[in-house]
Design a protein around this nucleic acid. Sequence first.
DNA 1: TCCATTATTCGAATATATTGGAATCATAGT
DNA 2: ACTATGATTCCAATATATTCGAATAATGGA
Lengths: 116, 116
Amino acid sequence: MEKNRAVAALAALAQDSRLDVFRLLVQAGTDGLPAGQIAERLGVPGNTLSFHLNQLRHAGLVTFRREGRSLIYAAEYPAMNALLAYLTENCCQGDAAACGVGTCDNSSLVQDKLNI
Amino acid sequence: MEKNRAVAALAALAQDSRLDVFRLLVQAGTDGLPAGQIAERLGVPGNTLSFHLNQLRHAGLVTFRREGRSLIYAAEYPAMNALLAYLTENCCQGDAAACGVGTCDNSSLVQDKLNI
DNA sequence: TCCATTATTCGAATATATTGGAATCATAGT
DNA sequence: ACTATGATTCCAATATATTCGAATAATGGA
């Protein structure tokens, strides 16, 4: 993952409403949720939500598809994983245990799996 | 980890210079680096770097200690791990494999280990 | 075709973040 | 006490982000 994309993804997540949206979509799974339902659940005006969804979309963290009149948004899991990988990359000069990252090397795992 | 702290950490990382600083410190390990050396390595003016280090510090992502005239900054690994845990939390309704997060559940792992 | 529904885009007001010059603070050595 | 070094704080200029009212677009049904 390039630095610019990482900064964009972090910036997209670094906002109250957008972090809520993203987590909601992560929980919703690959089926996603229509924009209106997201707006209702989070109590955010439609046009404001639209702005935030656009930010998340440009950051590559969500995608959408049309279904009738509804636009269904869904989390882009590979992008989330790439960001996690980027953040844990080079951690502790390879000695992950030294900084408590866990027993498995998330970064290389995800990179191998997804070819990012 | 509370949402506010997560947003603060994400915002701190969502900036070119600060992401550079943080990654540099993550690589440097627990010994850390003096502010002047960070400024020199990244080509950032001292006062500007000071501002950014302050942001990272307020977000809980770095700490510092004095050594003579130098202030040595170091990455706060528990905070980094708590952020990763927060981001992967509730992912895919527990079915981590479904969204490619890896074979181990990072979030619960880190939470158990660090009591965050 | 006309209307209701679902959602996005535009624009302008407001708020927040970033930058660097100049001044200041803290420490160590003489 | 004086000076040099390493770093921070203050401030004002500039740039970016957020919000919501109003206007617009896309779809489906009568």
